[in-house]
């Protein structure tokens, strides 16, 4: 690849990926009610957004669901990663691996539908906790991939040394392996958090009245047409996601520097 072709491919590729997002952000500061006609700079839609109580309540629900499901998912993922990396071939491993990673590629609609059927069959009222359980299942595979990759590169001899000095296997893992795994654990948490915050389909199937998430709220408004207020909500969501991603990149970069 010549230097010119390389630069052209990168420029065109990044333009395609980022231009639509940039447009959305720019037009969220549009004074005009007509989304695609520029009427001057204004932050009025952010004001309208902050006065929209339904939107704020949904945002709060989404953040709570994301925080909880990501925490559950990360803990279970750490256990799953340890089992896959350290336990060798145990009985039922194939089924475990299949169930763990299938949700990564499975259409979300199938997962959402199947969970709804279980909640209905068990007569569980759908609401906040059913969405948390559904999102934990959905993000578990992603979180396990992130932690397992790091766990595979750890030097086992450090833990063995701790055990030779009298530590139990669990203590050796907690004091030697876990600190080294922290960036991967943080990454897994952030990944699960973002996946939950972003999900529309699974939440639509598993939530009940009073637990409408932000994507569900945005979706029902988007179906009625584009609006500057949705652009403002999108921009805030993008800013939030970028901050999380940026913090994560910074942490892993600092780790790499040391």
């Amino acid at each position: 690849m010549t230097m010119f072709a390389r630069r052209a491919a990168l420029l065109a590729g990044f333009l395609f990926l980022y231009a639509p997002i940039a447009l959305l952000v720019v037009y969220s500061f549009n004074a005009s009610r007509l989304v695609t006609v520029w009427g001057g700079f204004s932050t009025r839609w952010y004001g309208a957004l902050l006065a929209n109580e339904q939107m704020l309540a949904s945002a709060a629900t989404s953040l709570k669901v994301a925080a909880l499901s990501a925490a559950l998912s990360t803990v279970l993922a750490l256990m799953a990663a340890v089992a896959l990396e350290r336990f060798g071939r145990f009985g039922g491993r194939t089924l475990f691996v299949g169930a763990l990673f299938a949700p990564i590629v499975m259409p979300e609609i199938v997962l959402g539908l199947s969970l709804l059927l279980v909640f209905v069959a068990l007569d569980l009222p759908r609401g906040f906790w059913t969405v948390v359980a559904a999102h934990t299942t959905f993000s578990l595979g992603f979180a396990t991939v992130a932690i397992r990759a790091r766990l595979a590169t750890l030097d086992r001899s450090l833990e063995e040394a701790a055990q030779d000095l009298g530590a139990t296997p669990l203590a050796a893992f907690a004091h030697v392996a876990v600190p080294q795994l922290l960036p991967a654990i943080a990454g897994a948490y952030a990944m699960a958090f973002i996946l939950s915050l972003d999900d529309l389909v699974i939440a639509s199937f598993t939530s009940g009245p009073g637990s409408t998430t932000l994507p569900m709220r945005i979706y029902s408004q988007v179906r009625l047409g584009v609006s500057p207020e949705i652009n403002a909500a999108s921009t805030l969501l993008l800013a939030f996601g970028s901050l999380a991603l940026g913090a994560l990149a910074f942490v892993s970069w600092r780790r790499g520097e040391k």
Binding site: L76, A83, F87, G91, L95, F96, L113, V118, A133, L140
Partner: peptide, 30 residues
């Protein structure tokens, strides 16, 4: 396939049971 000790079984059981309850049983129900 190895038989796991009690501690290891407990570690494996948590994610395994979760996946059975929230993934495999739901699929069977579909």
């Amino acid at each position: 396939a190895r038989r796991l000790g009690a501690g290891r079984r407990a570690i494996l059981a948590a994610p395994y049971l979760w996946l059975v309850a929230f993934f495999l049983v739901p699929l069977a129900l579909v």
